[in-house]
Amino acid sequence: MAQAPVQTIHRDPQLFYWILFPITAVMILTGILRHYATVLMASAPKQLDQKTMREQRSLLHGINVRTNFHTLSRKSFNARRDALTAAYESGAYLKDPERRGQAPPNPMSDPSSMEGMMGMMKNQMAMVIPNTLIMSWINAFFSGYVIMKLPFPLTIKFKSMLQAGVATKDMDPRWMSSISWYFLCIFGLQPVFNFLLGSDNAASQMAQQMGQMGPQAGQMFGPGVDPDKQFLAEAENLAVIEHYSVLDGIENRLLQGIKA
């Protein structure tokens, strides 16, 4: 079988200075700009008022008792269990006990949760707007020609991605157009930003998207969760614990452990 002849395309060397370099520079600068915009727009973490803090930490207290009950003797554990279960079931730790049993407020109408959503919106905006702008800029100025050849072979599937805007059927997918260079920059500039801005920067949208996928720390006390139900569930969890203590039979354990 005959080898397909190596395609050569003579490009103007000026392409490098006038397209490749400007796109890269613009991408880096927008990344830096986005980082500082995010830093400026970040709202300070919300102050909890005393009652909310009491509600949340009392629940955490119960969870601690449940997970670490084995450090206690049976008597002190039972005392705590009785006290906590009674308090949870009577709603003593609730932020506003009068609202007990009612449906939780709609998260959209709650101003405190609105703030959190606004913050998320702001972040989204800081990502979406520059991306749209740059993409349309590249499309308007640099679309329609090939700027470089990748140093490694690629399969035909990459053609639609790498040669966006260049409708030539037989061209090797190794040739890439300016828009594909733009995509490469989006995905590949993270190390550059790490170097320039430190590792916890907000410049790359990839990192932000990863963050959204991950588990959210504040989920447990998020809007729309009824604390009363959480307390009741925790009371039940405490009630079913079968107590044992690490102190049971520790003398023998110690003697054996040292001898061994």
């Binding site: 005393q50 009652k51 009491r54 930490r57 009392s58 955490l60």
Partner: peptide, 8 residues
Amino acid sequence: QLLDFSPT
């Protein structure tokens, strides 16, 4: 009082 609202 402090431990009442922050028992952790």
